[in-house]
Design a protein around this nucleic acid. Structure first.
Lengths: 343, 343
DNA sequence: TACCGAACTGAGACCGGTCCCAGGTTGGAC
DNA sequence: GTCCAACCTGGGACCGGTCTCAGTTCGGTA
């Protein structure tokens, strides 16, 4: 009876995860030494280190994240924060690329990615509370509307933050990873001009987003005298808004259109065809992002490629720097013109 | 000098997050009582409860997740685990819908969503280790390939798991949330028949996925005598595979095609058009999922709607039940025929 | 009046780590 | 021979909660 009980108990303890004390006992050293080995191993004798490493290997020991976080004050995780009111960002294939890249970059550092959605006001509130509670070490903010109230909250809370895209008006306080919007737009505009197009229209994004504002700036700069204010329409990056904008542009007899997103370009192509125009024969239509959609679209869309993998990798890298104490900094990455069939 | 120092120190402590002990002191009770109030408040006198609640409100106290997890052994978080080898799932808009739904469902319960990607073998290894370390309470597995070795690992580790789609061969050990594939496929097949189509082809998914296997079963059942083995092509749910499959089907003179995903349907439509066929006039093409793509496609795609919001909500609900001690169970949800223009 | 159980409270151990610090060796410089 | 620095080690406090359990109060019952 007694034997059965102790048998059962030893089964339980065998199944239970080993703690640092068990490793210490097995290796014949103190907890402190085990801890040192785990964290870099400075000031540990070769003998002790080896004994500890063998014990760890033998037991399959893994440190308890929660205990470590409690003791160190570091969470060991970063938040991936989505703030678009609608599910705009979820329709957007680009977000998935960023998410995947960020998750992988974190996994490599044995940190975790916590997904936070702050769409509704209620959600924003609970997210703000979550963040100020210190449950994560830093935030990757995926939103570029400058009016975003969450930006101020993040600055208030003082939590290390990196934004994707330019957070207009907050360049000093927050780190940002972005592409050179102006130069990218100039490149595409130059391409369209070089193709011999004269009446080139543009479908921009909202003016309170960097992509909406600066791609237009670059477009205007490059066209110079040729620039025609009446050939500019505003969209919201969605397929539908691209369709609507194109429908309006068709009344102005354009021979080329530069859309600020691939999805708007796809919508524009659909609208152009519905109006009986061929793409690219009658109208050339180019996009922006190279979001996967562009390559498989019919016809394949000429676009500016955003370096999504670099963007996500840099977001993580810069954010970790800031967490480690560095000052906020901004990184600007290059885009690449990808010529396909639509323009 | 001394004053300056103590001033600085008090500033620091003022900024520091309040702990349960400070709340206890402020409310004039013990830590235990505060803890009781936080966790439901049983066996607490009204006076004590009120004092504690006021102190919490006044200080903006929030419990430290890590400390709580350490003490309770519960992590307070669930993993959203992606296992597709390629970035297939990231191209797939449906995954984003699930992710969003799950994140929201968890936020409502003040739990967090940890994103895990297990694509490469190295990633799978570290994910397995992460999970067996008990860093999360449960796993939402997003993958439906029955050959997935991770399934066995999850069962080995014994971590509560819920799968999205039928994990073929593991119905007893794991919970699953799925739709009635067979009935859904029958509904769509019946619709195509009712529209007067005679030579109806199908583009299925891989045979080791429930969507690939059972949608074909339903399709065959419904067509009965009309079913023609030569009109079945296999795709991998992607746009390109839909294009390729359709190109082959066109040689067999089909007048309707049922694709097992909207993306394959879109690819099929493109291929049909390239071959000079009009959709739906010459060939009707239907999809599956209603993934957002379907509604905005040109023409809008007739499809079977999967109840994404219900699926994600059920995944979370069932998983929490299992974590709480319930036995694994399977939930089957209904789909809905959405008739648009393509079929 | 003695007893009992229910309602309520607080002390202390505990979860599994990290980190500060005091102490012990060892080797080299003076 | 002494002193000191560099290297290595272990004990104990601590991070911020939860939880068990013993103790107190109080109303009701035999």
């Amino acid at each position: 009876m007694l034997w059965v009980e102790s048998q059962a108990m030893s089964d339980v303890s065998a199944k239970r995860k080993p703690t640092i004390r068990q490793i210490a006992a097995q290796a014949g050293v103190s907890r402190s030494t085990v801890s040192r080995v785990i964290n870099g191993g400075h000031w540990v004798s070769p003998d002790a280190r080896q004994a500890v490493e063998e014990a760890i290997l033998a037991t399959g020991y893994t440190a308890n994240h929660h205990a470590r976080s409690l003791a160190t004050g570091r969470a060991g995780s970063l938040a991936f924060l989505l703030t678009e009111p609608q599910q705009l960002l979820f329709d957007d294939p680009t977000f998935a690329l960023l998410l995947r890249g960020a998750a992988e970059a974190l996994a490599q550092r044995s940190m975790t990615l916590v997904l936070l959605v702050a769409g509704t006001p209620a959600e924003r509130e609970s997210v703000a509370q979550f963040l100020s509670a210190g449950h994560v070490d830093g935030v990757m903010l995926i939103s570029s509307h400058e009016s975003d109230p969450l930006l101020d909250q993040l600055i208030d809370v003082g939590i290390p933050t990196v934004c994707c895209g330019l957070p207009l008006g907050h360049e000093r306080e927050l780190s940002t990873i972005s592409v050179d919007e102006v130069a990218s737009a100039r490149t595409m505009a130059a391409h369209l001009v070089a193709q011999g197009h004269r009446r080139i229209g543009m479908i921009t994004g909202p003016d309170d987003t960097p992509g909406g504002r600066y791609r237009l700036v670059g477009f205007r700069e490059e066209l110079g005298e040729q620039f025609d204010e009446t050939l500019v329409e505003v969209g919201d990056y969605s397929y539908e808004s691209g369709q609507a904008a194109m429908t309006r542009l068709l009344e102005h007899d354009v021979d080329a259109v530069f859309a600020a997103s691939d999805r708007m370009a796809a919508g524009a192509i659909a609208a152009a065809r519905r109006a009986g125009r061929r793409v690219p024969e009658d109208i050339a239509i180019a996009g922006f992002d190279d979001s996967g959609l562009a390559a498989t679209h019919e016809p394949p869309i000429t676009t500016m490629r955003q370096p999504w993998d670099q963007i996500s990798a840099k977001m993580v890298a810069v954010l970790l720097e800031v967490i480690a104490g560095a000052s906020p900094r901004s990184v600007i990455l290059d885009t690449e013109l990808v010529v396909r069939e639509s323009a």
